[in-house]
């Protein structure tokens, strides 16, 4: 409860700070909605020409795209530093968080808001309503799916970027990992063979950002919900363990830094 209150205060401050530059904030959020919409046209054109890919149709793409955009947006809007944790580690900027009486990881992740994330999140919902499969029950499942997908996505980002404790670098590798999980998530899963699917479920958990939650949104299923919850818990546990193991190795030059 204490951590939740802390998070709420942090988000409130972050949002107020971002809204100080209102025009920039709104232009990034609206720009991202347009960006996602225009990007999705590729799939509209593709399925207009080729109709389906091994049973995967345009309506499936709307769902997959909606969940991936929603999870990506939610991570950026509320845990914006999940995208540059490696830079913070290698730049010695964890000092600031270590000196405060709060969970280091939670504090660092939630200390930045990416304004375009709100655009991605909103686009996720637009994509869901455009899928032709919208219903009240479906909307509830969609929200739950986005929350679990976000947890898995953030856990994956922490895992990848915690390697910076050992490697001393990580920005480029992070970009590659983000590209990998998002790209795999928004392509029809029916394209991939069994070996690739093992990778997509266990190593780069893109299946939990696209195809699996999309299936859950289409129709409620306990096994699917269980698998998503298990994946979220498993990846989060791994991420926390690796981050805290890495934190023991953390060192910095005691540089004077200002966190704003």
């Amino acid at each position: 409860m204490r951590e939740l209150n802390f998070l709420l205060s942090l988000w409130k401050t972050n949002l107020a700070s971002a809204m100080e530059y209102r025009a920039a904030f709104l232009s990034q959020a609206i720009g991202m909605i347009l960006n996602d919409g225009v990007y999705f046209l590729v799939w509209v054109l593709f399925f207009d020409r080729f109709k389906e890919v091994r049973g995967w149709e345009l309506s499936d793409m709307f769902l997959v795209f909606g969940i991936a955009a929603g999870a990506f947006g939610l991570a950026g809007a509320f845990f914006g530093n999940a995208f540059n944790l490696a830079e913070i580690i290698t730049g010695g900027r964890l000092d600031y968080y270590l000196s405060l009486p709060r969970s280091v990881l939670l504090h660092v992740l939630a200390s930045r808001v990416v304004p375009s994330g709100f655009g991605d999140l909103l686009y996720g919902f637009l994509s869901y309503f455009a899928s032709g499969q919208a219903s009240w029950g479906g909307l509830g499942r969609f929200i739950l799916a986005i929350l679990l997908a976000t947890a898995i996505f953030i856990a994956f980002l922490i895992l990848v970027q915690s390697l910076a404790f050992w490697l001393g670098t990580g920005g480029t590798f992070t970009a590659l990992a983000v590209n990998a999980i998002i790209t795999f998530a928004i392509y029809p899963i029916t394209l991939f063979n069994q070996a690739a699917k093992v990778v997509l479920f266990l190593i780069v958990p893109a299946a939990f950002l696209g195809a699996v939650p999309a299936g859950f949104v289409r129709a409620f299923s306990w096994p699917t919900l269980g698998s998503m919850a298990l994946a979220a818990a498993g990846f989060l546990a791994l991420a926390l363990t690796l981050f805290h193991l890495g934190l023991r190795r953390y060192e910095s030059g005691s540089a004077i830094q200002v966190e704003v």
């Binding site: 530059y21 025009a23 920039a24 232009s27 990034q28 609206i30 720009g31 991202m32 347009l34 960006n35 225009v38 990007y39 046209l41 590729v42 054109l45 593709f46 020409r49 375009s116």
Partner: peptide, 23 residues
Amino acid sequence: AEEVAPFEWIYQKMVFILGGMLI
């Protein structure tokens, strides 16, 4: 403009779609 990133995103997506980058 205060922020140019949205222009960059839209330009990139125009290249994707109208430039025939992905199809």
